[in-house]
């Protein structure tokens, strides 16, 4: 029973200090949820570094718990989009295969960095924070340019995946695209899954422009398809992280995911997302996306400051 609790709720003997910890976590989940709802993103890329900086949650556990949280939020979204027929099933299937493989490799990559750091946890945290800075800066850049792809979609150019000459191809009737490379779809899924398994980030914010511009999906189909792939990738990452927990330690089996943390985030996060969606329609949130890139940039700066002071 003790080892089961260590697998699903690690941290009660260290950084989890009491009710105040969970109240802060619920507040953080609500705040990120509102931002996510306003700007149409998952928010994992902000959650993981903020949990690490504000609450002192080890980055490995923050990433794992974020992956568990993503399962809850993406399930709600997938159900809604499935009922509306907003999922390009064939594309989702091939991208999901890539996502499963990517999530498994991502977790192995995380373990490899622990080994490379020689079990030195502060060094591991510094490496992960450095990677987070790069990802946050990339997301800030993508979001500052994102509003352009809606206009480009009407032009329907021959997409990158139609130009790929190797491997079998499929047609995507929902988006009127023919000859889309299956290997290319697998590769897109693999990259997203890698982010999920490695950093606890759904990658949805990067999936959207790739699915619209790279694959040629209609924007409404890209949202539903992206959420489906994110859900499959998150489930694979959670299973892989739990089954491989403690594989680097001979004596101590400690989980990489905390269910109490994930549930606290979900509790306020799902309500926050819906509230954010309502606010976004009142504020014309699409036009505000470039301002969101400033928030992401500020989060990157916070991680940089933490990184500098950790040396």
């Amino acid at each position: 029973m003790n080892s089961f609790l260590q697998l699903i709720a690690p941290g009660f003997d260290s950084f989890i200090t009491g009710p105040g910890f969970f109240i802060t976590l619920v507040g953080l989940g609500f705040f990120i949820g509102i931002l996510a709802g306003i700007f149409g993103v998952g928010g994992g890329f902000l959650l993981v570094p903020l949990m690490n900086i504000l609450l002192g949650i080890p980055i490995e556990l923050a990433a794992g718990s974020s992956t568990c949280y993503i399962i809850g939020t993406s399930t709600t979204g997938v159900i809604k989009h499935f009922h509306k027929g907003n999922i390009e099933i064939k594309a989702a299937l091939y991208i999901s295969f890539g996502s499963i493989a990517g999530a498994i490799v991502g977790d192995i990559l995380q373990d490899s960095i622990v080994i490379l750091a020689g079990g030195n946890k502060p060094l591991f945290e510094q490496i992960m924070q450095g990677v987070f800075v790069l990802i946050l800066l990339l997301i800030a850049w993508v979001m500052s340019r994102e509003s352009r792809y809606d206009e480009k979609f009407d032009i329907r150019p021959v997409t990158f995946l139609q130009k790929m000459r190797f491997g079998p191809n499929i047609d995507l009737p929902g988006s009127k695209q023919i000859g889309v490379s299956i290997l290319g779809l697998f590769g897109i899924g693999f990259s997203g899954g890698l982010l999920t398994g490695f950093m606890g980030v759904s990658g949805g914010v990067l999936f959207m422009p790739i699915l619209v511009l790279g694959v040629g999906l209609a924007p409404h189909l890209a949202v539903g398809t992206s959420l489906t792939v994110v859900l499959v990738g998150s489930i694979s990452a959670v299973i892989k992280k739990t089954i491989s927990a403690g594989s680097l330690s001979q004596t101590n089996i400690t989980g990489k995911i905390s269910l109490p943390i994930a549930i606290s985030l979900l509790f306020a996060g799902t309500i926050g997302v819906r509230l954010g969606m309502i606010i976004s329609h009142k504020l014309h949130g699409q036009k505000l996306k470039k301002y969101f890139s400033i928030i992401v940039f500020l989060a990157a700066l916070m991680v940089i400051v933490k990184l500098i002071f950790s040396f």
Binding site: L7, I8, Y69, V238, L259
Partner: peptide, 20 residues
């Protein structure tokens, strides 16, 4: 570990299904 993995997947999944 397999039971823990099932719990960690099913709890947020059910949360999403109920909340939708």
């Amino acid at each position: 570990k397999y039971i823990a993995a099932a719990v960690l997947v099913l709890v947020p999944l059910l949360w999403g299904i109920i909340m939708a």
